[in-house]
Amino acid sequence: MTLDWLLQHLFNGMTLNMFLQHLLNGISLGSLYALIAIGYTMVYGILRLINFAHGDIFMTATYFAFFGVVTFGMPWYVAFPIVLVMTGLLGMLVEAAAYRPLRDAPKISILISSIGASFLLENLATVIFGGVPRPFPTPEIFTGVVTLGNGLMVQKLIFYIPAVTLVFLVALLYLINKTKTGMAMRAVSKDHETAKVMGINVNRTISLTFGIGSMLAAVGGIMWGMKYPQIAPLMGVIPGLKCFIAAVIGGIGDIKGAVLGGFILGIGEIMLVAFLPNLTGYRDAFAFVLLIVILLCKPTGIVGEKIAEKV
């Protein structure tokens, strides 16, 4: 009994090739989720707060890329790094405007402020960029298909996305674990006051965390635009929510957890649609159901540690 046979008989004639295709799709979607989820988890780790605007920062990045390549006619290798920097600055701007003034305010106010920032970005995007979806200008180098050994044809992008994700993930882990800046971030996420006493500029570190998280969202956004080549002002809402969920599933505050959660969610979603086509309409609900199951069984996520509440 081979896997091929099992698939064929259990799931309406799905072949091994189809299964592989779905798996690859799931991995690349999972990588995108992971990149965005890291932004959530970093901000949560340092501020204990959902950055509702993160999905909209991701959306804005795709528009930056669009204007860089189409309006200003820049080649992609010039445009994309500029997009990363600009998105990072946007993230810092959002932090300075919506979060910093409320540093000592009750948590519920900060949460409302972040929802306000999210809606403001969405609506500004609708006004400035127009509500009509635009085609994403995918550079030629990233298009095309390759044929694998057993006649399986897949987009080249499906391999590029996980590879790029891996590169940025390694860079991020290096930054956090091996550099002084990373040490400052880890210190601030443990305890703001003590970090301040140790001579760390807390505001600058938080701002930097937002910047780095937003840059990773920009990387995710550019590749998202290539994979689903249509961009719209509200495109960030659902991926944003799902990636927050991915971060919670993995264990919020932990970067490896966010990556793990991203892959679980991405692969799970693709497989749900592949194996149970009747449930296609419920695809967007899958993440939320998973979230609730996780929160009930293991509220701190898969890799998260249990934190006792201080009275």
Binding site: L241, I245, A285, I292
Partner: peptide, 25 residues
């Protein structure tokens, strides 16, 4: 019954999720 055990932003995101699930259903 299941979600009100959660607090703060977890509760926010879980209730938001349920609102979305109702809409998807």
């Amino acid at each position: 019954a299941p979600t009100l055990r959660l607090k703060g932003d977890y509760l926010a995101i879980a209730t938001l999720g349920f609102g979305e699930i109702i809409r998807v259903i």
